[in-house]
Amino acid sequence: MTHTFFLDDQEIPFREGQSVLQAALSAGHYIPHLCWRPQLEPHSSCRLCTVIINGRPFSSCTQPAMKDQKVDCDTPELQALRKAVLQMIFVEGNHYCPSCEESGSCRLQAMAYHLGLQDNRFPQQFPIRERDNSHPDVNMDRDRCIRCETCVRASRDLDGKNVFGIHGRGIKSKLAVNAPSGLLKDTDVSAEDQAVALCPTGCLTVKRVGFKVPIGQRIYDKESISAMALKEFQAEEAAHG
């Protein structure tokens, strides 16, 4: 038996066990998100997918869909909150889109366009972060890390390697690797790993392929992040149900 809930007053069907986000995407409705990926367990760290359910804020990626609940998503207040969260993510890192090889295919950048980000709002933090060029095939540029733990989950759950982790707390936390030297070259990561492929920004990239896709043919030159998210979700559902 299919139950339904109401997303911005529209009736959305859902299956038992689906989150609000999954049910919404399944029905063709986009809720902005960065750290949630259809292949991975939800993480609820970016907070962009926050919705109001029966008057209270929840992460829609972790909140189970429930019968007849009332979910507000596309409201001016929530869009303003999402924008503020994204602005915080930007100022906490060093994101220089003009020369980044991920530009045009970067989820963070695409989300900024989606939410109409036009200024920093908060003081730029300019954190000092170490780059790791040591691996022969994979670059790690911590300046671009948003600590979404996509690589942590993908390496553990999809690659079966457990290469990445987050070290430290709060604003000082940073991406760490599972090697006594602390260097990527001493881990068993490879350029084919899902941990590298799924990184939403230019933090983890395959070496020597940057800029090979011309402007106009990059991922978000062709599709908006909302359209891409719906496609990705549908592809994952078709593959794994």
Binding site: S99, R131, N133, K207, G210
Partner: peptide, 14 residues
């Protein structure tokens, strides 16, 4: 300095 070499033509044109 410290940037990967394939970034150079994109960065320096700025």
């Amino acid at each position: 300095q410290g940037r990967p070499y394939w970034e150079a033509p994109v960065m320096v044109q700025r």
